[in-house]
Design a protein around this nucleic acid. Structure first.
Length: 419
RNA sequence: CGGGGCGUAGUGUAGCGGUAGCACGAGUCUUUUGGGAAGAUUUAGCCCGAGUUCGAAUCUCGGCGCCCCGACCA
């Protein structure tokens, strides 16, 4: 993409109504725009990142047998009455139509997926079944905060699994756990992410969460110094011992909950009477699991974890572009060669942000590049051109390297980091 | 939902009952261009509504909005 036609612009000062690191950097760099507290638009750069995250999640969900669907946001009150959550769920958005009929805006989709599955699943042969969607959720957060980390409207991947037995659910639960670890590795936050025991809410005594250590987080976890297992503060007092290695030595950390996995058992299959017939024709209750990841929250978490005083440092797999090509100087030869590098890289299958803006000093372009945080910067100026070279720099490193132009494309493309 | 703080231009501020001003930013043009350059020029504001007053950015009341702490958070 040519930066001269990118309609968003970087902002020099941090917006005064944003305190969290992720919101300040993402707004300044032009990835997102705040419409109101807890509700953000994703601008071209931010939408690219969101789609990368989405695709990683989609790939990993597909790899464990997930079938993708899309369910409605607008949902009938009756389904929520069936589960009792119309009254019980404090943060459920409720709306009325012109005839005063009630609807819920989907905060989660058990009330839709269970009746849906009931229409198609009737035999034990139909199980297990794994269905997921990636879609906006609405929650009436009374206190939206921390930029993208806690919003009223946010994109979420929600996976639901349906099983004949708890044992089968347990097996799939472990598969999801492994898939989640892959996702957190690919988006670049796994090193700071811990599998964490937490309260099970109303379903079971405990659940498991993935918590990423960050000052921007709102949870407190205790990380086992021996094995990296963590325990959420909400249950620490009753546990006080690592459930994994039985030791009692912990570090206390602030953390962001980036995903959770949950055994629902019959919590929702029961109210909707979701059952199958087994091989002997007997009714068997279906057991379920639910597994969520917030996409915007992942994006915000990545920024919280991957930034420096100059801006964002995107992990390679979710960066909006592979390369940020910067053209400095208005010489027609410089422009011609920059254009050729841009075209060649794109032909090689890479996404390039090409800073072809006129009238900006190199300093301004470099400051913008640091803020936006594309992993690899390629600088072509009159000066580098004199040496028949371009300067290559990783956003995460200080060193720069001059690469001779004839070898440039090969050098950049040969980096195995970008696929 | 409880508590606290705060609303004057995009940002930061001045004004303290009597003509809304400054700086930065942003736009245009020119000269520039190796880490946010310079000149000229332009743009843009009292959160909203009632009340008090001859007169309200300023005082009173109500609303709305934002931030922070807590509670909540399949």
């Amino acid at each position: 993409m040519r930066q001269s036609i990118l309609f968003t612009k970087t902002i020099k000062e941090s917006p005064k109504d944003e305190k969290s690191v992720n919101a300040r950097l993402l707004v300044r760099a032009g990835f997102v725009d705040k419409l109101m507290a807890g509700v953000y638009s994703f601008l071209p750069l931010g939408f690219l990142v969101l789609k990368k995250i989405e695709n990683i999640i989609r790939e990993e969900m597909n790899s464990i047998g997930g079938q993708e669907i899309l369910m409605p946001t607008l949902q009938p009150r009756a389904n929520w009455m069936t589960t009792g959550r119309w009254e019980k769920m404090d943060d459920l958005f409720k709306v009325k139509d012109a005839s005063r009929k009630d609807f819920a805006l989907g905060a989660t989709h058990e009330e839709v997926i269970v009746p849906l599955v009931k229409k198609f699943v009737s035999s034990y042969n139909d199980l297990p079944l794994y269905v997921y969607q990636i879609q906006n959720k609405f929650r009436m957060e009374l206190r939206a905060k921390s930029g993208l980390l806690r919003g009223k409207e946010f994109m979420m991947k929600d996976l639901y699994s349906f099983h004949l037995t708890e044992k089968d659910l347990d097996g799939y639960y472990e598969k999801v756990k492994a898939a989640y670890i892959k996702i957190f590795k690919r988006v670049g936050i796994w090193k700071k992410t811990h599998l964490t025991f937490a309260s099970g809410g109303s379903f079971s005594k405990y659940s498991q969460e993935f918590q990423t250590i960050s000052d921007g987080g709102e949870d407190i976890i205790f990380v086992c110094k021996n094995c990296n297992q963590a325990i959420n503060r909400e249950i620490f007092d009753e546990v006080k011992i690592c459930p994994n290695c039985r030791r009692k030595d912990f570090n206390e950390e602030k953390a962001i909950e980036v995903g959770n996995i949950f055994k629902l058992m019959n919590k929702y299959s029961k109210p909707f009477d979701l059952f199958v017939l087994d091989e002997k024709g007997r009714k068997k209750e279906v057991v379920m699991g639910t597994y969520g990841i917030g996409l915007g929250r992942i994006m915000g978490t990545v920024v919280e974890v991957c930034h420096d005083e100059k801006g964002i440092i995107w992990p390679e797999e979710i960066a909006p572009f592979h390369f940020h090509l910067i053209q400095a100087g208005q010489g027609s030869k410089t422009e011609k060669i920059a254009r050729r590098i841009y075209d060649d890289l794109q032909k090689s299958g890479f996404a390039v942000l090409y800073d072809d803006r006129k009238g900006k000093s190199l300093g301004e372009k470099l400051v913008d590049a640091d803020l936006i945080g594309v992993p690899v910067r390629v600088l072509l100026s009159d000066r580098t051109l004199n040496a028949n070279s371009a300067e290559v720099k990783l956003r995460s490193k200080k060193e720069t390297e001059l690469i001779r132009l004839p070898a440039l494309n090969k050098f950049l493309v040969s980096r195995k980091l970008y696929v």
